[in-house]
Amino acid sequence: MTTSRTPLTARAATRAGVLFGAATTLLCTLMGATATAGTAGAAPGTTPSPSVAQAEIPAGVTAGVAVFDRQTGAFTEQVNSAGQFRSASVVKLLIALDLLWNRSPDALAAADRSRVDAMLRGSDDAAASHFWSVNGSGAIIDRMVARLGLTDTARPPSTHPGFWGYTALSARDTVKIYRHLLDSSPTAVRDYVLGNLRQSTRCATDGYDQHFGIAGSFDRPWAVKQGWSGFSSGGCTATATAAPRSADRERTAAGAVDLARPALHTTGVVGAGDRSIVAVLTLHPTGTAYGKAYSDVGRLTRSLNVPGATRPAGTWIGTWGSGVRVRAEATTAAAPLTTLPAGVEVLVRCQKRGQQVSVPPYVNDWWAYLPQYGGFMSNIYLSSPENQVPGVPVC
């Protein structure tokens, strides 16, 4: 089967711009080059903590980073680790631990256990709202701050008491939460909570692809609790249109936690024996697309020194288009496995010829295998100037 592609000079200007920027990124990746841009600026009203190592913070991104090696008992990364961010769904860890304080998971009613499972695996918001309401709302945070000795964590502002995702949280406090879970909580609680986090679903219950950051940067074993807020669509389903609540566009008083910019967080444990605890909390410029933030958090996470982590083989390549499907085989007749967030970077392990796909003026019969999805996408949607991506082996 033959393929053809119109010369760059004849392509639409928008497509050319996408290809140029992404091809530059691919070239840097293939050459082993890295570019560090932006700043790990402290959240307003906080004092930056010293850097242990130099994480690569993408331009325009504000980040709080902490990586703790449980084997040595030392941090390998700390950048703005005391900076306060709105927690988004990471607070569900505290909601779950509060529920299980002095209680075995086996003592939970069947309905509550089902809610916890959904809250930790699929980041289910309805489950979190239920527990937030019945267990005292902000009092949950007050109790957990005292129990775990958290220093940067605080209940949501008084203007938004029902918004559990507006709980203030830092990277270093997130590490404390995981250290408690791993080293101090009862075995049954530890195994239950981590067991759910190890079963994190790619598609969250609200239609967002939540396997960014840790889940995309490292091979298993890992266990993750992610968070996102302020985005309009997050892949996984072609019709995901969960708009941010109006309050997500607000900022409270000067010096308070930023409630305005889109937030995307990846937290969890990585490696055999849960050797490393990783917390990456980020804010992105207003209007940032989910796919771009997803890719930026991925680049940041991949730059970190994470002892015990195994990095997957392959080449990271940008994509273009929206509603792009990953399929079980290299043909559009194969069952779709998921839908990619628009413009996200993907890890390509190999490529092979399959069904010819046409998106005028482009025609391509090469398909890329994405190991983290266990399926194929048409190369026509890869941001590469060639139908067959240079440097990527044939399957």
Rank of each mutant, 00 (worst) to 15 (best):
Ser246Gly: 07
Asn387Gln: 15
Ala171Gln: 13
His160Ala: 15
Gln356Arg: 15
Trp228Cys: 04
Leu340Cys: 08
Arg261Lys: 07
Arg245Cys: 04
Thr288Gln: 01
Val270Tyr: 09
Gly343Ser: 11
Ala342Trp: 06
Asp248Gln: 09
Arg179Phe: 02
Phe85Lys: 04
Gly60Asn: 12
Asp365Glu: 13
Gly165Tyr: 02
Arg202Met: 06
Gly234Trp: 07
Gly17Ser: 07
Gly216Glu: 10
Leu169Pro: 05
Asp209Ala: 12
Lys92Pro: 00
Ala23Asn: 10
Asp274Ala: 08
Gly64Leu: 08
Glu345Trp: 01
Ala253Asn: 02
Arg349Ser: 15
Leu148Phe: 02
Ala16Asp: 11
Thr205Gln: 02
Gln71Ile: 04
Val306Arg: 13
Ala243Trp: 08
Ala74Phe: 12
Pro307Ile: 03
Ala55Val: 12
Met377Glu: 14
Ile214Lys: 04
Ala42Tyr: 01
Arg299Ala: 05
Thr36Val: 13
Met31Pro: 04
Ala42Phe: 03
Thr9Val: 12
Thr201Trp: 06
Cys350Phe: 11
Asp173Lys: 07
Ser87His: 04
Thr187Met: 11
Gln372Leu: 14
Phe163Gly: 09
Asp296His: 01
Ala188Gln: 14
Gly60Met: 02
Val145Lys: 04
His160Ser: 14
Ala10Glu: 10
Gly207Glu: 03
Leu197Ser: 09
Ala313Thr: 15
Thr331Cys: 13
Glu250His: 15
Leu97Lys: 14
Ser104Asn: 04
Pro312Thr: 02
Asn305Ser: 15
Asp117Lys: 11
Pro336Arg: 07
Ala242Asn: 13
Ala260Val: 11
Thr319Phe: 10
Thr14His: 10
Val280Asp: 04
Val359Glu: 13
Pro385Trp: 09
Asp173Met: 09
Ala43Tyr: 05
Val278Ile: 05
Ser104Ala: 08
Arg245Ala: 10
Ala96Ile: 05
Gly122Phe: 01
Pro341Leu: 12
Val257Arg: 03
Ala256Leu: 13
Ala82Cys: 13
Phe85Thr: 02
Gln78Lys: 08
Arg143Gln: 02
Gly64His: 03
Ala289Cys: 05
Val359Ala: 13
Gly374Cys: 12
Ile380Pro: 05
Gly136Phe: 07
Ala59His: 01
Ala334Thr: 09
Arg202Leu: 07
Pro186Val: 10
Thr205Leu: 01
Val134Ser: 02
Val278Trp: 00
Thr29Leu: 08
Ser114Asp: 07
Arg327Cys: 03
Leu283Lys: 09
Asp191Cys: 01
Ala243Glu: 10
Thr331Gln: 15
His130Phe: 08
Thr174Phe: 00
Arg190Thr: 14
Ala43Gly: 14
Ala260Ile: 09
Phe231Gln: 05
Ser129Leu: 09
